[in-house]
Design a protein around this nucleic acid. Sequence first.
DNA 1: GATGAATGAGCGTTCATTCAT
DNA 2: AATGAATGAACGCTCATTCAT
Lengths: 224, 224, 224, 224
Amino acid sequence: MKRLLSNIKIQVNENLYNKDPETSDLGKKIIQNSIELIHEIGIESFTFKKLGVKIQSNESSIYRYFENKHKLLLYLTSWYWSWIEYQLVFNTFNLSNPTDKIERAIQVFTQPVSEDSSYEHINEVLLNEIIINEFSKSYLTKEVDHENKEGYFSVFKRLITRLQEMIVEINPEYSYPYSLASTVLEASIYQSFLKDHFPSITDCSSSEQTKNFLLHLITNTLKK
Amino acid sequence: MKRLLSNIKIQVNENLYNKDPETSDLGKKIIQNSIELIHEIGIESFTFKKLGVKIQSNESSIYRYFENKHKLLLYLTSWYWSWIEYQLVFNTFNLSNPTDKIERAIQVFTQPVSEDSSYEHINEVLLNEIIINEFSKSYLTKEVDHENKEGYFSVFKRLITRLQEMIVEINPEYSYPYSLASTVLEASIYQSFLKDHFPSITDCSSSEQTKNFLLHLITNTLKK
Amino acid sequence: MKRLLSNIKIQVNENLYNKDPETSDLGKKIIQNSIELIHEIGIESFTFKKLGVKIQSNESSIYRYFENKHKLLLYLTSWYWSWIEYQLVFNTFNLSNPTDKIERAIQVFTQPVSEDSSYEHINEVLLNEIIINEFSKSYLTKEVDHENKEGYFSVFKRLITRLQEMIVEINPEYSYPYSLASTVLEASIYQSFLKDHFPSITDCSSSEQTKNFLLHLITNTLKK
Amino acid sequence: MKRLLSNIKIQVNENLYNKDPETSDLGKKIIQNSIELIHEIGIESFTFKKLGVKIQSNESSIYRYFENKHKLLLYLTSWYWSWIEYQLVFNTFNLSNPTDKIERAIQVFTQPVSEDSSYEHINEVLLNEIIINEFSKSYLTKEVDHENKEGYFSVFKRLITRLQEMIVEINPEYSYPYSLASTVLEASIYQSFLKDHFPSITDCSSSEQTKNFLLHLITNTLKK
DNA sequence: GATGAATGAGCGTTCATTCAT
DNA sequence: AATGAATGAACGCTCATTCAT
C-alpha cells in the first residue's frame, strides 16, 4: 500500500483560484451556482456576468475567486477527479485480489453518481454531467502544455496511474498499461455521452452495461 | 460486400454550408486557409474576421459559404471522416479474412496521415490534428441532438458502423460491438493527443504502438 | 373646373425609380411583393435581400429598378396618393355644391379601402396600411427638403391643395384653409392608427365615425 | 380639480432604462449629448457608437443605461411629454373658465419652447424639435402594442386625456372628445413640421398662427 | 436586362476585465 | 472583502451596394 488518500478534504491545486472558495459563503455560492449554471447552459455560454446575476452579486466579485471561467472549470474538474480518486482509494483499500480491485475501480468510474452529503454546496450528479460534456474542453486548448506544467491536471493523471498500477498487478508483462488505463477512463465518460446523444453507436444503455463492457474489455485484454 | 463507396468526391451534408465551397476559388481558399488557421490558433480563437484577413477578403464573404464557424468545423470534420471512410472501404475491399480487415481498419485509423494529392486545397495532415484537438468540441454542445437529427454526424456514425460490422464478423456473439467500435475509434484519437501532451499516461509514443495497442485490445476482447 | 386627372395611368415621379417597374414582369413582381413584405415586417426590417428571397431573384436585380428602399417607399406612397387623388377627382367631378364635395372628399379619405382590380399587382388594402404605418417616415428625414425640391411629394401636396380649394369654396374668408386641409388628411390617417393601437385616445372605432368626426370638424370650423 | 402633478421630478417609466441616467454624471452626459446628436443627425443615423465618440466614452458604457437606441428615444419622448404635462397642469391650475383652460392648453402645446433651467442637462428646445421629427417613429413600429402594454406611452395618453377632459367641460355632449384632443395635439406637431418643410400646404408660419388655428378649430368644433 | 458573387462598412451587443470606492 | 461602474476590444452578423458576367 503506497500513497494514501492525500485529499480527504478534497484539495485542489491552489493556483487554480485567487482565493479559496471554500473559505467563504460567497465562495461556496459561486461553486454551487456555477455547477448549476454550467450544467444548464454549457461552458461556452457561461459567463461571470450571468453567474453574477444568478448569485445576485456583481461579476467583479467572482474575479476575486477565479481568474476566468477556464480556471473555474479546471477547479471543478479537479475537484471531481479528486473526489473520484477518494472513492477509488476508499473502495479498493484492503482488497488483495487484483481482479477484485479492478472490478471495484471500474464500478467507481461507471456507477451512477449520487449526491455526497459531505459536500453540501456541490451537486455531484450535475458535476458528473459537466465532466461528461465539458471535461475534454478543459485540456483541448492551446495552453494545455503550460497548464499541465502548472500541475492543473495532476489529480487526473494520478487517477490514471492508480488504475495503471492495478492493471500491472494483474498482468505485469502487458505492454500498454497506461494506454489501457487512460482508454478505459475516457471510455467510461465517452460511452456515457453516446448513450445520451448517439445511442446508435453504443451498446451501453445503462451504467451496468458500461461496467460489464469495460470489465470484459480490460480483463480479456490482460489475459496472457 | 454491401454498400460501396458512396462518396468518391467526398460529399458533405449540404446543410452544413450555404454555398458549396468546392464550387469556387474563394470557397476553396476558405477551406484551405481555415484548416491552417484553426490548426494554428484553435477553434476558440478562430474567427471569420481573422480568416478574412488571412485570405484578404472580407469576413462577410465567408458568410456566403458558412453560417458560422461551428458549421465550418462540422464541414471540415465531416469531410475528414468521409475521407477516412473512403480509405477504410478502399483498403478493406476484397479482403475476405475478418482479422485482416480489422487490422487494415486499425491501420487506417492510426497510421500517420499523409497528404492526399487528389484534394489540393485540403491539407490532410493538419486536418487530422484538427480532428484530434477539436472534433469532440463539434458534438459536445447543447445543440448536439438537433444537429444529429439534421444528419451532421451521419458520416462519423456510418464509419463506426462499418467497424462494428467487422467486429461482428470476427465474433458474432460479442455483446458490445458498437461500444467496442466507438471506443477504439475514440481511443485512436485520444491516444494521439496524450502522446503529444500527456505522455506520462500513455504507452503509445508512435503510431505503430497505437496500432498494436488497439489491435491487441480488439482481438483479445473478441476472443471467445 | 380646373385641372383634370393628370394621372389616369397612375404616374409616379420618374426620378423615384431607375427603371419603371410597370414595364416588366420583374418590376411588377417587385412592387407586388414589396407591398406584401413591407406590410408584413415594416420598413425598418425590410431589405432588398429579403425581397430578393421572396421573389426568388437576386437583390442586385432590384437595384436596377430602385436606388434604395427609401425610394421604393416613396414610389409606393406616391402611387397611393395618386390613386387617392384619382378617386377624389372622379368622385367630386360634376358636383356643384361645395358641401357635397367636401363630404365626398372626406369619404374618399376615410372609407375602407377595397382592392382596385385595374391594378392587378397592387394590393391597395395592404398599401393603405403601409401608408398608415410608414408614410410619415418617408418625409421625416434629414433629406426631406432636398427630396421635396425633387418633387417627390408633389402628388401629396396637390391632393391637399385640392382639399384646400374645396374648403375655400365653402368659406373664402377662412384664414387657415391649407392648415385645415393638411390637418384633416393627416387626422384621417392618424385616427386610423389610434383605432388599431391606442383605442383609449380616440372615439373613432369605425371608418364611419372617422368620417363623421372629420366632417363635423371641417364644417363647424368653416361656419361663419 | 382631480389629479395633481404626479411628476415634479419628471419621472419616466423605469422599464425604459437599465440604470436611471439621472443618477450619475455619465447618465446625464448621455441624455444631454443624445439630444444634441439625435437632433443633429436624426434617429436613423444615430448610433451608440457615435454617441460614445461624442461623449468620449465607450458605447458599451451606454448599454449600462439603455438597452438600445429605441428605448433611449422612448425615454426622451416620455420625458418631454411629462415635462409638457407638468406645464399644462401648472398653467391651467386654478382656472375656472373652461375656455380659458383650453386656450392655455393650446398655448402650452404651440408656444415656442424655451429652455427650462431646472433641468440643466436637457435642452428642451432641441428636444421639442426631436419630438416633431422623431416622435411618430417611436410608435410606428411592429412592437407598438407590446410597448404600449408595458406603459411606455402612458404619459402621452394621459396628456391627451387631460385635454379631452377640458373639451368635455366645454361641451359635454360632443361625441368625439378624445379624437379631437388627439387630433389637436398631433396637429400642433404636424403643422410645426409643415411650417419648416412644406410651407405650401400650411398657413401657420408662426406659433401664434398655429395657436389661433387650433384654438379656432377647437372652439368652433365644440359650438353647440 | 438580369443575375450571382463579393465586399466594405458598421451595427448592436457581449465579454472579460479593471478601477474606484 | 465585496461591489458598482466603466470600459476596450472584439464578436457575429447584416446591410446596402458594386462588379463581372
